[in-house]
């Protein structure tokens, strides 16, 4: 599966178009990490625990998007975009979306 933020895959021609695919996941923050982050909030700076947590979650949403594209029979996803939003107290939704296509 080829993933790209471009409108096409370099050197390949798009022969079929399957439409929008998306993958999302909602993650709650770990209580231990939340306490640590609360402490770090006094001095500021990067919250490494959250960075890792969200990276994992983003990977998960990409995997779901890829799975959906696979089911359609696509071999590439073009124009991939990411979005993150806070949906509830302490929970964040990570969304990945793109256009599933078949390239030669």
């Amino acid at each position: 599966m080829i993933l790209t933020t471009l409108e096409g895959v370099p050197g390949r021609r798009i022969v079929r178009h399957y439409g929008l695919v998306q993958g999302s996941t909602i993650r709650a923050k770990h209580i231990g990490k939340d306490i640590l982050a609360g402490l770090q909030n006094i001095v500021g700076g990067e919250l490494t625990g959250y960075t890792e947590l969200l990276q994992e979650a983003r990977q998960e949403s990409v995997n779901r998007m890829v799975k959906q594209a696979n089911q359609m029979g696509a071999n590439a996803i073009v124009n991939v975009r990411f979005a993150t939003s806070s949906v509830a107290q302490g929970a964040a939704e990570l969304l990945a979306y793109g256009t599933a296509v078949f390239v030669e």
């Binding site: 080829i2 993933l3 790209t4 933020t5 471009l6 895959v9 370099p10 050197g11 982050a37 770090q40 909030n41 006094i42 001095v43 500021g44 700076g45 990067e46 919250l47 490494t48 959250y50 960075t51 969200l54 990276q55 983003r58 991939v80 990411f82």
Partner: peptide, 17 residues
Amino acid sequence: DRETTLLVGSVVISSDY
């Protein structure tokens, strides 16, 4: 003759008191 890949860089940053 070009290869492509998706690259993602992320960071969570917090304010101080």
